[in-house]
Amino acid sequence: MKSMYHVSASPHIRSSVTTATIMRDVAIALIPASLLGVYQFGFNAFLVLVTSIVTCVLAEYLYKKLMKKPGLPYESSAIVTGLLLGMNLPSTVPLWIPIIGGVFAIIIVKELYGGLGQNFMNPALAARCFLLISFAGRMTAFGVSSFNEAQSSVTKNLYTFLNGAGSLDGISSATPLAQIKTMEAAASVADVVSLKDMFLGFTGGVIGETSILALLIGAAYLVFRKVISLRIPLIYIGSFVVFLLLFGGHGFDLYYIAAEVCGGGLILGAFFMATDYVTSPITKTGQVIFGVLLGLLTVLFRVFGNNAEGVSFAIIFCNLLVPLLDKYTVPVAFGKGGRKNGK
């Protein structure tokens, strides 16, 4: 029987790309930014990242095991969720915060809705927003003071190891975005923040968002591997710039625009989270509308909201609109519609 031809239904040519390889590529692409985050914020940041990843993987494993769901052996999506969640937390949080966040992301946002492919929101971002609302104080404590002999009981080297390179000069608790938002009207943006520091990642913020350079390297890898297309990120950032020119209140100040683009989680969100396959539209038109809406909402949240940052709320809100966008932007099948036979 074994010598019989193997007959199967179409498709006959299969791609070697699987969920696991895509997730592996995303994880690889996030490594530069994570490394820079760990360099900047020290061993504490590393602990937060590891705790978050381990929690997500364990939560998924235990849930599937206890609920007797298929899906073990494992695909690596929980690792990516955990890494993204960890990168969205400040390095100063106690370790139970990534644990709560990881359990929330995997069990409530993902598995309860049917697991990977069925989640209606980006799990990592939903967990971040959950934590941000629940523990507002802890989630916005970005500041790391520089080493102080009188206060600290550890040696200077250990302190630097724990708190990272950023702690040599101290990291101010206000992120560049917050500094721009709270600066006096007369001051110019260039006096308040340094664009070079923001681009390289030597500012305060959550672990993964600070270094634009590292994030862009990761994004380039994803584009090169054809894991993401540039449509959503570029339209998102483009519409963000346009709406910021309209509503930002700083006129045509290029330094301000650049600082807003490099500040906060915009690059991280645009390339790594808005492009999540499950929670972004499938159709081209849908993706364009999705990107424009993201840009508009981010500007509205940043300029008119209470917080300096609005990327995560904008993305999870637009995630909710995805089924609607997909429903109303179904492309016309080839040969259907349009003008009838030259009439």
Binding site: I108, F130, I133, S134, F135
Partner: peptide, 15 residues
Amino acid sequence: FEPMTIMIMAPGAFF
């Protein structure tokens, strides 16, 4: 115990 503020806000009701 550090309270999770979200539970006394609207989403907490659904949870």
